[in-house]
Design a protein around this nucleic acid. Structure first.
Lengths: 332, 332
DNA sequence: GTGAAAGCGCTAACAT
DNA sequence: ATGTTAGCGCTTTCAC
C-alpha cells in the first residue's frame, strides 16, 4: 500500500504538502496542488484511516448495538441508520446480541478508540452494561428505546400517543371489549405503548380488566401461545392491541389456527408498520413510526454531542400514524 | 483515556513491559506481571486498537457488504455472520446498499487499512466494484453468492441440488404442470436454483415450457404482480417453485387475492427457510440452507486467506434440506 | 527479565 | 507557499 510519503517523493514535494492537498488546505500553490493531485490519482492512493484517526482522535465510525433480529423492525431500523450514517460519511460497526455482550463490546470499542460513539437500539438488554456506558459519559444515543432520565440523548416515536391512537380507533367503532398483548416487561417501548392504550381506554370509561393485559416476549411463537390461551378462553376479546407487529402476527396466526376470522370475529392492531404488515395475507392495521426520520435524528444528535459534549440531553419523540388495513378496518 | 505509558509509570516498569504483559509474552517475571496486571485491572485499561493496528497491520475488523434488507433472509445471514465473527474476537463493519456504493466503500476500507477483509453477500450488485476488488487481490469471500471462476473463496448452498429437490417433490406427487418464478436475472443464487429445477424436470421427462419460466425482482410486490398474471392466465400451473421465500410469499399473497386455495389448488415451494416460513398463516414448504454453517465457513475461509494468501481458491457448497409444510405437503 | 529506542502513517504546529 | 519536526499509542527489535 502506498503512503503519503511515496506520493511526496513522486511529486517532488514534502509529505506535509501531500497532507495539505488531501485536506484541501488553502495554502498550496495551484501548480503544486495539481502536480500532487495527478500523482494521487495515478497511484489510486487511499490514506490510512488508522494513522489519521490516531492524530485526530476521530475515527469516522459509529457503533450500533441491536438485539438479535427476531423482530423484522430492527433490520429496517439498522438499514435506516446505515443510510443516515453513510450520508454523513460515517461507517457503522454493528453489534448484535440479546445479552450484555454487545453493549460491553461497544463501550470497550469506544474506550479503545475504535469508534466515536454508540447508537443503542431497543431489543438490546436493559441492564448493567448500558448503565455503565452512560455513567462513563460516552457519547451515546438511544434510538427507538428510552430510559427515563438517563444521561443521554434519546429518540423514539411518541409511544404513549401511539397507544392512545390504537385505543381511539377501537373506541370510535364502539369496541370496548379489548386486550393488550405485550409491554408488561422491562422494554420501554412496549411499556409506554401499553400504558397509552390503557389510559385512553380508562379516560373514555372503558377500563381494561387485568386479565386482559397479557405479557409475552417479542417473538412470534410466544405471542402465538399467549394469544391461543387468551382467544380460547370463554368470551374472548373482540379487539387486541399488540405492542408491536411481530406480536400482532403471532395473534393473527393463533386466530387462523382457532378458526377465528379477522376482522369479522377479531380486530388486531400492531405497532411499527414493518414491510410485511402490508402483505395481503396479513394486512395488519398498525402504528407507523417514521423510521428514516428517527434514524436521521439519532445520528444528528450523536454528531452534535461529539462536537459539543455539553449540550443538555434531549428526548425527541416523533408522532406515529395509524395505518388502517384489514385487521382493524375503518367502517364509515 | 489512560495509555500503556500511564500504566507503566504507575507500576514502576517500562512501557515495553506493559506491552509484554498485555500480549502474554513469556519473558516477564511472575512478580512483575502481577504488579502490572493489578494496575491494569484497577485502572480498567483498554489498549488503543488503532495504534495496535498500525503496528501489526491487523485491525480485527471484517467488512460485510449486503443489499438493502427487503429480503428477510439477509438479516438472518448477517446475524449469523456477526455471531461467527464475534466468536473469533472480530468486529463487523456493515455496508448495506443496493448499488455499487457499498462495495466501493468496502474495498476502500480495506485499502485504507480499516478492515482486514470483506465478506460479500448476495443481493449486493453483481457489477464492477466487486470485480475490481477481486482483481486487486484483496482478501474477499463470497457468502451465499457465487461468481464462476472468480479469484476468491466462495460459500453457498448447493443451489443446483436445491432446485432438483424441489422438482423431485413435485414429480413424486405426480405434479408436472409447474412454473418457476425468479432466477432469470443476474443473481447467481436464483439462476442456479432455477437451473437445477429445470434440469431435474427435463431429465424426468417433464420439460417446463418457456412461458412457465417467469422472472421477477426479489421483492414481495414484484413477485405478487408476476404471480397475479401467471395465475390469472387460462390453465394456471398447479405447482410453483420460487427461487426464494420472499418471492414465494408474494405468490401466496397473489393466490389469496385471486381466491386460489393453497395447497388445494396450488402448491408453492420457496428457498431459504426464513423464520416466517414456519408461521401458521404462511406455512411454506421450502429449502433450508444451513445459515450458521455457511457463515462459519465464510469467516473461517477469510481468516485462512488472511494468514495464508496463497492457498488455492475454494468453493464450498452446503447441502440444502427440503422442509415440508402446508404449501406443498407430503401425501403418502 | 527488562529498558531504551525505532517507527507504523498520518496531522498540525512551527519554521523558513 | 512549503519544508521540518514532533508526536498520536502501540509492538518489536536490540541492548544490557
Amino acid at each position: 500500500m502506498p503512503t503519503s510519503r511515496d506520493i511526496a517523493r513522486l511529486a517532488g514535494v514534502s509529505q506535509a504538502t501531500v497532507s495539505r492537498v488531501l485536506a484541501d488546505k488553502p495554502n498550496v500553490r495551484e501548480e503544486t496542488r495539481l502536480r500532487v493531485q495527478s500523482v494521487l490519482d495515478s497511484i489510486g492512493y487511499v490514506p490510512n484511516e488508522y494513522a489519521r484517526a490516531m492524530r485526530t482522535g476521530r475515527t469516522g465510525t459509529i457503533g450500533v448495538v441491536t438485539g438479535r433480529i427476531t423482530n423484522p423492525f430492527y433490520p429496517e431500523l439498522i438499514d435506516a441508520l446505515g443510510t443516515a450514517l453513510t450520508q454523513r460519511g460515517l461507517r457503522m460497526v454493528l453489534w448484535a446480541s440479546d445479552t450484555d455482550s454487545g453493549e460491553t463490546a461497544a463501550t470497550e470499542a469506544v474506550r479503545s478508540g475504535l469508534i466515536d460513539g454508540v447508537l443503542f437500539t431497543s431489543a438490546s438488554s436493559d441492564s448493567g452494561s448500558l448503565r455503565l456506558a452512560l455513567e462513563s459519559a460516552l457519547p451515546v444515543v438511544l434510538a427507538v428505546r428510552s430510559i427515563e432520565d438517563a444521561p443521554c440523548d434519546q429518540v423514539t416515536s411518541d409511544n404513549l400517543l401511539g397507544g392512545r391512537l390504537a385505543a381511539q380507533h377501537f373506541l370510535s367503532h364502539g369496541r370496548t371489549d379489548v386486550a393488550v398483548i405485550g409491554g408488561v416487561g422491562w422494554i420501554s417501548t412496549g411499556r409506554e405503548r401499553r400504558e397509552g392504550f390503557l389510559r385512553q381506554m380508562r379516560e373514555q370509561g372503558a377500563d381494561v380488566p387485568p386479565d386482559r393485559v397479557v405479557d409475552c416476549e417479542f417473538v412470534h411463537d410466544a405471542a402465538r401461545e399467549a394469544a391461543l390461551s387468551l382467544l380460547a378462553s370463554p368470551g374472548p376479546p373482540l379487539s387486541t392491541f399488540c405492542v408491536n407487529d411481530i406480536i400482532a402476527f403471532g395473534v393473527l396466526d393463533a386466530a387462523a389456527q382457532l378458526g377465528i376470522r379477522v376482522p369479522d370475529d377479531l380486530w388486531v392492531i400492531g405497532y411499527d408498520d414493518v414491510r410485511m404488515a402490508s402483505w395481503n395475507l396479513l394486512s395488519l392495521t398498525t402504528l407507523s413510526q417514521p423510521v428514516d426520520d428517527i434514524a436521521d435524528a439519532a445520528v444528528a444528535m450523536l454528531l452534535r454531542r461529539l462536537d459539543n459534549p455539553d449540550t443538555p440531553y434531549e428526548h425527541r419523540r416523533f408522532r406515529p400514524r395509524l395505518i388502517i388495513r384489514r385487521s382493524a378496518p375503518s367502517i364509515p
